[in-house]
Design a binder for these strands. Structure first.
Length: 418
RNA sequence: GUGGGAUUAGUUCAGUUGGUUAGAGCGCUAGUUUGUGGCACUAGAUAUCAUGGGUUCGAAUCCCAUAUCCCACCCCA
């Protein structure tokens, strides 16, 4: 017990890996069915990318980044999320000139220096997706339906979709003035954080947990009621599309999203099973981000899903799957010569894609049987002097006890498809 | 960053007001006459009682510090 996994990190063990693989495969399949292609980006980027991309007033950037200086004196940061890196790659690789929309998905680890609790790790996994170049609400509805289809394929139900619009820089500026006028007489009664927010980002005051119950906050003007005509039309367009597809939602004026790059549509998929914060998947539109990161102005939208939280939810809903036995056949051997024959047979079976095992531990015959049983290996064959002489084994099906005689050279054919 | 709870075998947990050599279930290894598994029975291995100090004749047990885990606040996936 000398070494332990670092705080906020953990091992994903063989006993749980099956459900990770199912989730990864399902996510990739669903994304592919929408025309998204996988991208793999580096684990670290230059610190500046996140400061600019995510926003240097956000909690994520100001207190949660793993930042260090490398041997060349560069400031490096382990990615706290995926969008900034994908945007960097999109610009750097000239994807602007690809036909719109450019649809990308990814499966990454991300790092945030945080105090842990349920559903929150310092190293965690995200499935994410970004779509560039489409500005109408069609694409908003599309990526939300990616999540919806994915949840259905995972066997998950009742994960609530919350949507909101936080407008564009134009209507938000207008609204911020309105909010400030509204809150100005009450600032002194509010919590410390809100007093700071009043100057920096009054929008977040609405989201305050401390003052959230107060009438001042409850009755504050809502951004959703003060959108400019374009933003209003966009949001109405999204609602109409979700209704047409049959995806139910609730409008939640309080979702603001803590990352600076969001504009217009923001959304969350929320559950009660993944800890108090409850968000399994969060995303939204970021029409200014590509330009902010040095590319030509390109609208974009995306989401990220916490894989640990997803699996917490899957477990809570009883939708985890049993792992299969990859090893189909155990060959027990009764002598040195038989053991060598068993090795030869196993080699041939594996060349043909059939999982099999034979004794490696020098166990007695009886202990070999016991081992095969405990491992849940579905078929069993014994090789001893008789089999070596006759060139035929009896393959026993462990589930029903039936035995089938099979020639040694016909074993591959017999096991194929089992 | 703030607060609460916890830490004893691989694992889940007992362990009395401080008192001899710290226990159990599961798991693991072997065996129950060398030709057929899961069950049962028998035996065995495995613990710096998280770490470092302190109190005491004596500490897994009481005190302090540190680390880690869990939960909540904040914020996010």
């Amino acid at each position: 017990m000398r070494y332990a996994a670092q705080k906020g990190t953990r091992d994903i063990l063989p006993s749980e890996i099956h459900n990770w693989q199912i989730a990864e495969k399902t996510f990739a399949d669903v994304c592919h069915s929408f025309g998204y292609e996988e991208i793999r980006i580096p684990t670290f980027e230059q610190t500046d990318l996140f400061q600019r991309g995510v926003g240097d007033t956000t909690d994520v950037v100001t207190k949660e980044m793993y930042t260090f200086e490398d041997k060349g004196g560069r400031s490096i940061t382990l990615r706290p999320e995926g969008t900034a890196g994908v945007v960097r790659s999109f610009i750097e690789n000239g994807m602007t000139s690809l036909p719109s929309p450019v649809r990308l998905f990814y499966n990454i680890t991300a790092f945030r220096y945080e105090k842990m609790q349920k559903g929150r790790m310092r190293e965690f996994h995200q499935f994410g997706l970004e779509s560039f170049g489409a500005q109408g609400p069609d694409i908003d509805a599309e990526i939300i339906s990616v999540v919806d289809v994915f949840f259905k394929k995972m066997g998950l139900k009742n994960i609530a979709l919350h949507i909101n619009s936080i407008g564009c820089p134009n209507c938000r500026g207008e609204y911020n003035r309105l909010l400030k006028d509204y809150f100005r007489p009450h600032v002194s009664e509010m919590c410390e954080d809100c007093q700071a927010r009043f100057e920096k980002n009054p929008l977040r005051m609405i989201d305050c947990k401390v003052d959230g119950g107060k009438d001042i906050v409850k009755n504050a003007p809502r951004l959703i009621d003060h959108l400019c005509d374009d933003c209003k039309a966009h949001f109405e367009g999204l609602k109409a599309r979700l209704e047409a597809i049959g995806i139910s939602y609730t409008i939640d004026p309080n979702i603001v999203r803590g990352l600076d790059y969001y504009t217009r549509t923001v959304f969350e998929f929320v559950s009660e099973n993944v800890g108090t914060q409850g968000t399994i998947c969060g995303g939204g539109r970021y029409d200014g981000l590509v330009e902010d990161c040095g590319g030509t102005a390109t609208p974009g939208i995306g989401f990220a899903m916490g894989v640990e939280r997803l699996l917490l939810e899957t477990e809570a809903q009883g939708a985890l799957k049993e792992a299969p036995s990859y090893v189909k056949l155990y060959i027990a051997s009764m002598s040195e010569q038989a053991k060598i024959e068993a090795l030869k047979i196993c080699y041939a079976l594996r060349l043909n894609g059939i999982g099999c095992e034979t004794d490696m531990a020098g166990r007695s015959f009886k202990a070999q049987m016991k081992y095969a049983g405990k491992q849940g290996i579905p078929y069993l064959a014994v090789i001893g002097d008789d089999e070596l002489a006759s060139g035929e084994v009896k393959v026993k099906c462990m589930a029903d006890g039936t035995e089938t005689p099979v020639k040694l050279d016909g074993l591959v054919d017999f096991m194929t498809g089992k």
